[in-house]
């Protein structure tokens, strides 16, 4: 702040400078037992909360699993009917397709059975056979349908 004289002298503060801070200062350390004790306390609390939460989450998952199992017979019954309808359509289609071929019998290759089935079991056939009379991409649409959800 310039006065009439032009400048003011830079001087020490009122009462002089304080003593020089030269002593070594070591920060106060925690006791080792206290560190261990703190660690165990925090870990125990975390585990308690985690196990409690995990039990609740598992309960929710179990309930959803219950619901899936409960409606499964409904889906399964409808799926069986669709499957049998497809089998029947295939047989009708084959009868219509091969009616002009001499010596052709249904379910056989010119009279020779394709499957070994002496005890009237159900044929769980491959997708290629199920969709033999469809467009080829119908089969892939069906096979990879779940990838689109």
């Amino acid at each position: 702040m310039a006065s009439a004289g032009g400048y003011t002298q830079d001087l020490p503060p009122q009462g002089g400078y304080g003593p020089i801070d030269w002593a070594k200062r070591i920060p106060k350390r925690l006791n080792g037992y206290a560190v261990f004790g703190g660690f165990i306390a925090v870990t125990a609390a975390s585990w308690t909360i985690f196990i409690h939460r995990r039990r609740i989450e598992k309960r929710h998952e179990l309930e959803v699993n219950d619901a899936r199992i409960a409606v499964f017979p409904l889906y399964e019954a409808e799926r069986h009917r669709m499957l049998l309808r497809l089998h029947r359509q295939n047989r009708d289609e084959e009868r219509e397709l091969m009616k002009n071929v001499p010596g052709w019998e249904l379910g056989t290759f010119y009279g020779e059975p394709v499957y070994h089935n002496l005890r009237d079991r159900f044929h769980h056939v491959t997708l290629e056979e199920l969709y033999a009379h469809s467009k080829w991409y119908d089969m892939y649409t069906k096979a990879f349908e779940k990838l689109e959800h």
Binding site: E78, R81, L84, H87, R88, E94, L106, G107, P113, V114
Partner: peptide
């Protein structure tokens, strides 16, 4: 090709019931 003429497959009438939509 799995089914012979003599094998039992249910008819369409047996397979048609009201379905839950």
């Amino acid at each position: 090709m799995p089914w012979k003429e003599t094998d039992y497959l249910p008819s369409y009438e047996e397979l048609t019931v009201p379905e839950l939509t």
